[in-house]
């Protein structure tokens, strides 16, 4: 490194300025990259719509409300799949959010420091397991176990509810919910953990200084401070759950029925598309599958939009002003 030239008369001894073109070309390159993502989304949407055009024309809005799914008569409806997607995702959230938030609380507020990193590593490994492996494990281990023990217990103790009535096959909406819950647990846990870690220690100390117990500190200082972020973590998990395909296909039973019972098999938008695109022999059949894809994308967007709206009404740090 040579020493900087001393400031002398203007213009003399000043280091040459780098050429401007790398600056400009980088800007164009970055803009191109950003635009290509937008283009990709538009393209996917357009292709989906183009593929679905035939079915849209044939079935109209009735497609969304129809429970028919009959390749023989070429009659198709999306309702059982929308139902299956929503129900299995909600079950997954009901299981995974409390479990994930509790795990995150344990990791940030309670676990001895030495224990934290190993647990985090295990959770990250869970996220790395391929979907199909969860499906395989679901089919051969989880579903038989749920069928022989857990479902029986539910049937005996809560059998008076329509949710837990009816024959038990094994592959079912509930089984799919459990598998998806396991699959979205890592994302919910790690996002929740980051959220909880971002709660300032000063908040915890404020509660401790009032004579709060450990649990009270978590309740009044940690959870309430973090509630917006935790809601966001749940929405992120829901997004994953809605689109989860492989493992769900393997355990949900793949029957386009709408049943009040969680023991009954179901079908989701993602799994019917994955399962049936190879056997879609007629144009209308294929087009109906495309339309299901379109519905799935729309559903995800609508749910995210609703979540954003709900987030806005939830008071928390960053929105401390009166609504």
């Amino acid at each position: 490194m040579s020493p900087l030239p001393r400031p002398t008369t203007p213009g003399a001894g000043i280091l040459p300025v780098s050429p401007r073109w790398p600056d400009r070309s980088f800007r164009w390159l970055a803009l191109l990259a950003a635009l290509s993502i937008v283009a990709l989304i538009v393209l996917v949407g357009w292709e989906l719509y183009a593929g679905a055009a035939l079915a849209v024309k044939k079935f109209g809005v009735g497609f969304l409300g129809s429970s028919d799914w009959n390749p023989v008569t070429d009659k198709y409806g999306a309702l059982p799949f929308i139902f299956g997607t929503l129900v299995s995702s909600v079950i997954a959230l009901l299981i995974a959010v409390p479990l994930g938030v509790a795990t995150a609380l344990f990791l940030t507020e309670m676990a001895p420091v030495r224990m934290r990193q190993p647990v985090i590593t295990v959770i990250e490994m869970l996220a790395a397991v391929p979907s199909v492996i969860f499906g395989l494990w679901g089919v051969f281990v989880l579903v038989p176990w749920l069928r022989d023990h857990v479902f029986q217990w539910f049937k005996h103790t809560l059998g008076f509810l329509p949710l837990f009535k009816g024959p038990i096959y094994g592959p079912s909406m509930l089984a799919a919910g459990v598998v998806v819950a396991i699959m979205i647990l890592p994302i919910i846990t790690s996002v929740s953990r980051e959220i909880l870690r971002s709660v300032p220690n000063l908040q915890r100390e404020a509660a401790y200084a009032l004579g709060a117990t450990h649990w009270e500190v978590i309740r009044i200082a940690v959870l309430s401070y973090a509630r917006r972020g935790l809601f966001g973590a749940a929405v992120l998990g829901l997004g994953r759950a809605l689109g989860e395909t492989m493992a769900v296909t393997m355990v949900i039973g793949n029957r386009p029925d709408i049943s009040a019972s969680l023991f009954a098999p179901g079908y989701t938008l993602a799994s019917v598309v994955a399962n049936e695109f190879t056997e879609a022999t007629t144009d209308v059949y294929l087009s109906a599958l495309f339309e299901l894809g379109l519905v799935l994308v729309a559903l995800t967007i609508v749910i995210n939009a609703i979540a954003q709206l709900m987030l806005r009404t939830l008071a928390g740090p960053g929105s401390g002003k009166v609504m």
Binding site: L202, E205, A206, A209, G211, A212, S224, Y225, G316
Partner: peptide, 20 residues
């Protein structure tokens, strides 16, 4: 917790609970 009920504390930075 009992000790802290008898001996209250105010901190360097104000820390009201933001959701309250």
């Amino acid at each position: 917790a009992y000790v802290r009920r008898r001996v209250g504390m105010v901190f360097q930075k104000s820390n009201p609970f933001p959701t309250m």
